[in-house]
Nucleic acid binder design. Structure first.
Length: 671
RNA sequence: GCCCUCGUAGCUCAGCCGGCAGAGCAACCGCCUUGUAAGUGGUCGGUCGUCGGUUCGAUUCCGACCGAGGGCUCCA
């Protein structure tokens, strides 16, 4: 009785745990569409399509089929209608389609509750079934101002349109920087000029300022294909200095089936969650007594992390890097020179005063590596110099951004700094990028996306040098034939960078590697080398972290493999399972031989029966389970079971060793 | 940092409108000596996140704080 009840409880608890998260946009990655959608369309859509040519363009910008764009955008409006019916005083602001669904932000006196969501969703379904047409109307500026006279947010959008800032309805990548002027009477000529740009869409009782496109009628929407998932706060125009609005998220697809597929995908994501697996597999924990964002690695997790680092260290040494090691704190003057106290202070832990001098815990390793470089005179013959360190840094992150291992306050970087001449620079960047891809591939990642991040607002250095450096990075990307996207303003304060994002087993994207061009720190630290002509010359610098943060990388690795690590990284590689007590001695003998071959082995000599031991080893995702009983003992053999459930049957121990050891040594991704 | 939600045994969770806390798993002690995902009996285990308030009485209601989760903003 208890078994079936337990099973049901488990299902229920999983479902409950999932529900509040249905709409979460995954942390730093994009969810793939669970399946590509047919390009068919209703007749109503076809009509509208002729009108707004921009539909296709908008959909493309949002990286989704136009049909889905219309569907989700329309559901956002229907959501707003349902909310306004329940809370007439609510002020709708913006409501764009997003990947997998849509949201709408409202200014309301009281935040929405989960019960609200159920009611609103029910009302939305009724509206959808009401077969209401979506109609578009172009209005003059005056008319628009009149229509939305009660809504300061819409008025702000209208004034933005009038000012020619584009139709920012929450759908542009970049919100306009300047706050628009308050609505004021305008000369008649001006209003007329911009009037053609303003359109409103109406369905049933709801009219919204909107550029479209939408479905022709709500009958094109499947009432079983969408679901409201969560609420949250969101700043008006994403600006934390502006009003806090209340956002409702929904997911939406053409069919019930696709919605269900998506929900299943979320369940899969839930199962892979590194926080869950970190606990289940006893890898690490984050203890509130120690402090948020500070990771305690348990033996198994520490082993995986250590082996990953060891492998990378060997690769760095084999590729012309020298390993260095530097302190965790340094005097304030170091950080003044580097510029960190000017540009990075809000991310640094506060100063510690010792002997009337301020010391800071390091948020980055670079100044220390520079001090090593500067400890002696360097010749052009020494270059390039490549220093690497697994340096632990601390950055003060705002409480709300912390997330398991993926965003922490203390982490170890596989941090390297390359000092070279201007002439060596292009080749070094090329080499670094290739080296980075090699490292990532070694961990089983095959697909990458590259981003070229350009100069941020808060930065140091002349514009011309920024341009030059950015071009150098761009050329490397082109030479390596790596497709890339531009990340405007995403660079470090000292230089532009290439970020590599890896795609994991279920298509999610994670930022790990960063390769940064730096022409500023060498200046600030007055670095030099003696060139061929006997003159002092400034070296160029490349910063790179390939796995990035070991903490984050471990999190990504856990999710990528769903905790079933490749053999070379599995903390326990073989569990030996004696069937009865009389087989324990033989099991220990087998363990000894495997250990002699460099494998990590354990004998489960507990009192449970074999089935239970298999179950335990299986749920710990141990790659190999070797069952030994009378037959095996007599034959000097082992019965091999893989964690995949596959049974390799009985084989001589030597044969198992010949099978497993090469897989371990080759760091193969699968068993 | 901001908005919302949550915080009960090592883990997963029950505990309706306030009346001295419950299950399964795990752990521990036995019995069973087992053939590919849970054999069986018993025992132990909780100042119900912390601190205040309301109340005759608070795990339950209210407030503050701490922490977590989902977002916003920010990033390796």
């Amino acid at each position: 009785m208890s078994r079936s009840q337990l099973g049901w409880n488990r299902v229920r608890s999983r479902w409950k745990a999932l529900r509040p998260k249905l709409g979460r946009k995954a942390f730093c990655f994009r969810l793939p569409l669970s399946s590509p959608l047919p390009a068919g369309e209703g007749s109503g859509v076809r009509e509208l399509r002729a009108k707004d040519k921009r539909g296709e363009q908008m959909a493309k910008q949002h990286n989704m089929p136009e049909e889905l764009y219309r569907l989700r955008h329309s559901l956002a409006h229907i959501l707003a209608q349902a909310v306004l019916e329940r809370y007439p005083e609510a002020q709708p602001t913006i409501g764009p389609p997003v990947e997998n669904g849509f949201y709408y932000d409202f200014a309301v006196a009281k935040p929405f509750t989960p019960e609200d969501l159920e009611v609103i969703e029910g009302r939305m379904k009724a509206i959808v079934k009401g077969r209401h047409a979506f109609t578009c109307r172009e209005v003059t500026v005056e008319e628009a101002r009149g229509l939305f006279a009660h809504n300061p947010f819409k008025l702000e959008l209208i004034e933005g349109l009038v000012a020619g800032q584009g139709d920012d309805m929450g759908e542009e990548e970049e919100p306009p920087p300047a706050p628009p002027a308050p609505p004021a009477p305008r000369p008649p000529g001006e209003g007329g000029k911009s009037a053609s740009a303003i359109s409103v869409y109406t369905q049933d009782t709801f009219t919204d300022l909107c550029r479209g496109p939408h479905v022709g009628s709500t009958q094109e929407i499947n009432p079983e294909g969408f679901k409201l998932t969560s609420t949250s706060g969101a700043y008006w125009r994403g600006d934390e200095h502006k009003a806090m609005l209340q956002r409702i998220y929904g997911v939406a697809f053409k069919t019930r089936q696709e919605l269900d597929d998506y929900l299943r995908l979320l369940e899969e994501i839930e199962k892979r969650d590194h926080r869950r697996l970190g606990k289940d597999l006893d890898l690490f924990h984050i203890d509130s007594t120690v402090g948020p964002g500070l990771v305690l690695w348990h033996p198994k997790g520490a082993l995986i992390k250590q082996m990953s680092e060891d492998f990378c260290r060997q690769e760095h040494l084999a590729n012309g890097y020298q390993i260095v090691s530097t302190p965790h704190v340094g005097r304030a003057v170091l950080w003044e020179t580097s510029g960190h106290l000017d540009f990075y202070k809000e991310n640094m832990y506060s100063a510690m005063e010792m002997d009337s001098t301020d010391y800071y815990v390091k948020p980055m390793n670079c100044p220390f590596h520079i001090m090593i470089y500067n400890s002696t005179i360097r010749s052009y013959r020494d270059l390039p110099i490549r220093y690497a360190e697994w340096g632990t840094v601390y950055r003060f992150e705002r409480a709300g951004v912390l997330h398991g291992l993926l965003r922490v306050r203390g982490f170890t970087q596989d941090d390297a700094h390359i000092f070279c001449s201007a002439a060596q620079m292009p080749a070094e960047i090329d080499r670094t990028l290739k080296f980075g891809l090699h490292i990532l591939r070694s961990f089983g990642f095959e697909r990458f996306n590259a981003y070229l991040a350009t100069r941020p607002v808060k930065s140091v250095g002349e514009a011309a040098r920024w341009d030059e450096a950015t071009e150098a990075l761009r050329h490397t990307l082109e030479r390596c034939e790596l497709p890339y996207e531009l990340d405007e303003g995403g660079g470090a304060f000292y230089g532009p960078k290439i970020d590599l994002k890896i795609r994991d087993a279920i298509g999610r994207e994670w930022q790990c590697s960063t390769i940064q061009f730096d022409f500023n720190l060498s200046e600030r630290f007055d670095m030099s080398f003696i060139n061929e002509k006997g003159e002092r010359e400034r070296p160029y610098m490349i910063h790179h972290a390939l796995l990035g943060s070991m903490e984050r990388f471990m999190g990504v690795l856990i999710e990528h493999y769903a905790g079933a690590f490749p053999l070379w990284l599995a903390p326990l590689q073989v569990m030996i399972i004696p069937i009865a007590d009389r087989h324990v001695a033989y099991a220990n003998q087998v363990a000894g031989q495997l250990q002699a071959n460099g494998m990590r082995v354990q004998v489960d000599d507990g009192a449970e029966r074999m089935q239970n031991k298999i179950r335990k080893a299986q749920s710990q995702k141990v790659p190999y389970m070797l069952v030994v009983g009378d037959k095996e003992q007599a034959a000097g053999a082992v019965a091999v079971r893989l964690r995949t459930g596959e049974d390799l049957k009985t084989m001589p121990l030597e044969q198992f060793i010949a099978h497993a050891v090469p897989i371990m040594k080759s760091r193969a991704a699968s068993l």
